[in-house]
Amino acid sequence: MEHAIIAEELVYSYGKQKAVDGISFQISQGEILGFLGPNGAGKSTTVNMLTGLLKPQGGRAVLLGRDISKDVDSIQKYIGVCFEGANLYEQMTGEENLKLFARLFDVKNFDVKALIARVGLEGRGKDRAGSYSKGMKQRLMVARSLINRPEILFLDEPTDGLDPASAESIRRVIQEERDRGATVFLTTHDMMEADKLSDRVAFINQGKIVALDTSHNLKQQYGKRALNIEVLDAEGKLQTREIILDTPDTPSQVREIMASEKVVTIHSEEATLEDIFIRITGRGLS
């Protein structure tokens, strides 16, 4: 499978502050990569370099086989970007916002109503974007990023601060885009979302990628699997017993509890991506 994005030793500094410090990765066509990291880790700077907003000070980024530093104008025809935080023309209606970008991308026979409906904004297309709620603005931003049917979709915190219904509708659109064959670069600090949507996840911390793999493999490599068993003690109070899985003693420990104690519930437990991030970097994602 060809790579839609190849990043090689990307470097970018703001003054003496190194924001991105020699990161490298590849993303295959049709893949969703979750790019996880806390605020200030270098996520947005990486996206800015990949989308041509910033010129790398070191290394190179190749998108769809072309170096973004040398061929930015032609590459930008094939990418869609949804920024963190609303940046819409609020004096213009939702439809006008989308039509403007359709003209910039030279999209023929653009069906604005269909796109508005796809992100759940039916009936609000003729309202000014400034009158939209945060969730509606975010949905309009996602719609804007889809106008040119991009081959690569950059989504920067697309569900940040949204209500569950809005967040779910955006996740559904992301999956539809992946099914269509688009490559998705998903920047987020929501590990649940990344876990749910991403084929692979990358952890970035202090400008460096500290881990890059599938969620499953990362959990296997860094996490612990366990059983949480709730039992009633002699006084009738709930107690929790934890049995680590994948050890030679695990079967006997399970048998012993089942035989000697009054079991109320049994749950399996997996490490979350946040647990793994903390384990690798010593700090949380939030």
Partner: peptide
């Protein structure tokens, strides 16, 4: 920024 990631 939205304009600058289009062909413009």
């Amino acid at each position: 920024r939205a304009l600058m990631v289009t062909p413009m």
